[in-house]
């Protein structure tokens, strides 16, 4: 086999990428259309559907809820996930192997089952507020990303640096914050971003954890699509894509994009 892939393979690859990109281009086009129905190519360029997002109070409310949940959930997942990832690497010998598997369970079990179980056993069972259930659900579904990404960074960290600092008199907790954490900064940023985007886009867990006045943006989009077929949803989609591009640009600046492919 020569170095250059067979022309047929190159053609197939080009078609696959076309298949991946065209629908997204169409969404952007539809969002810019001046018509009251969804169409492509756009007829008359307008940003009215972007303004419309913020005129519908359900969208305004759910955007705020989604951002709150994504931020808080990610922060809590980092708070409990960083010590866990550290311990899994630092105490590799002392801790059992199944502990590592435990932390990826939230992405192994079907998300929709998890959402339903939280509703049935937690919200209905204890009468806990929906916002709390939503926050717990999102924290858990992003935890595997946090633990795995930070574990991957810690795997290449030389723990003898930490030992050196401690034997020179630095307190263990202080050492963690001044020596260990700065060395895995890239992993923490990547984990934050992956977790935030995952939470923001989640459907299956949030599906069951909505109630009067509380819902997330993707659930609101689903509800809107089933009732109206106007370009508002296309504009929200474009807004979300812009957010993703912005986030990817930040990753590119700080870590290089190939980091995400790992």
């Amino acid at each position: 086999m020569s170095d250059r892939p067979h022309p047929i393979l190159i053609v197939v690859t080009a078609l696959v990428y076309l298949f991946l990109m065209v629908p997204l281009v169409i969404v952007v086009g539809a969002a810019l259309s001046d018509t009251t129905y969804l169409t492509f190519p756009p007829q008359g360029l307008s940003l009215r559907w972007f303004y419309n997002i913020f005129e519908i109070s359900a969208f305004r409310r759910t955007i705020v809820t989604s951002l709150q949940i994504a931020f808080l959930g990610t922060m809590i997942a980092l708070l409990i996930g960083i010590p866990a990832a550290y311990a899994l690497n630092r105490f590799r010998v002392e801790l059992p192997k199944w502990l590592g598997t435990l932390f990826v369970l939230p992405i192994l079990v079907p998300e929709i089952v998890f959402g339903f179980a939280l509703l049935k056993s937690f919200t209905v069972g204890t009468g806990a507020p929906i916002f709390l259930a939503l926050l717990i659900g999102h924290t858990l579904i992003v935890l595997p990303y946090v633990v795995r990404v930070i574990s991957a960074s810690l795997a290449s960290f030389d723990f003898s640096i930490e030992e050196a600092a401690i034997s020179l008199g630095s307190a263990p907790v202080k050492t963690f914050f001044t020596i260990v954490l700065p060395n895995v900064r890239g992993g923490v940023i990547a984990a934050f971003i992956l977790a935030f985007i995952t939470s923001l886009n989640d459907v299956s867990v949030s599906l069951f954890l909505t109630g009067p006045g509380i819902s997330t943006l993707p659930i609101q989009i689903l509800a809107h699509v089933e009732q109206f077929f106007d370009p508002t949803v296309a504009s929200v989609s474009v807004l979300l894509m812009f957010l993703t591009v912005a986030v990817m640009a930040i990753v590119e600046r700080t870590l290089g994009l190939t980091f995400l492919a790992k």
Binding site: P23, V27, P218, V225, V233, L240
Partner: peptide, 9 residues
């Protein structure tokens, strides 16, 4: 990184 709802839509 684009949400499933957007991609189905």
């Amino acid at each position: 990184l684009t949400g499933v709802v957007v991609r189905a839509f």
